[in-house]
């Protein structure tokens, strides 16, 4: 019985490690070009989907956020590095536009940081 327990604990640790590896090696979603604008559609429902997006430096980014849930946690989306905070009313598409001026990885989060996404600028 105790051996089964130890094996199960090892399996849990293995799964957790796999998840850490998977999160680190996730492939970002690239933008759709819409008349020269790098466009993304992000669904806010339990998580940001997609939660990792990749865009090019110096070109306008348009992110269409659609929040399809009523939980208050996800009501605001923040891009702290670009000083953007937008309210996402339920079932409405909210457009966020800006031109990235530096390369790097920038997170975007809800007010509580439970919903997290990453914007990669190359």
């Amino acid at each position: 019985m105790q051996l089964v327990g130890i094996i199960l604990i090892i399996i849990v640790i293995g799964l957790y490690s796999w998840w850490l590896w998977y999160t680190k090696n996730q492939k970002p979603t690239s933008a759709k070009e819409d008349s020269g604008i790098q466009t993304f559609n992000i669904l806010v429902k339990g998580v940001y989907s997609p939660n990792m997006i990749k865009a090019k430096l110096g070109k306008l980014i348009r992110i269409n956020f659609r929040r399809e849930e009523s939980t208050d946690c996800s009501r605001f989306v923040n891009f702290p590095d670009f000083k953007i905070r937008k309210e996402l009313p339920e079932n409405q598409t909210v457009v966020i536009e800006f031109t990235p001026d530096r390369k790097g990885e920038f997170i975007f989060t809800c007010d509580m940081s439970m919903y997290q996404g990453k914007l990669i600028i190359e």
């Binding site: 849990v12 989060t109 509580m112 940081s113 997290q116």
Partner: peptide, 29 residues
């Protein structure tokens, strides 16, 4: 806040893992 963001990013899966280990420890060990 950067610290809080990092903790939040790993928080829930970590808790799920901890809860499973709790169950296994009580029941099997």
């Amino acid at each position: 806040q950067k610290f809080a963001d990092t903790v939040s990013a790993y928080f829930v899966p970590t808790v799920v893992a901890l809860s499973l280990i709790t169950f296994i420890s009580w029941f099997f060990l």
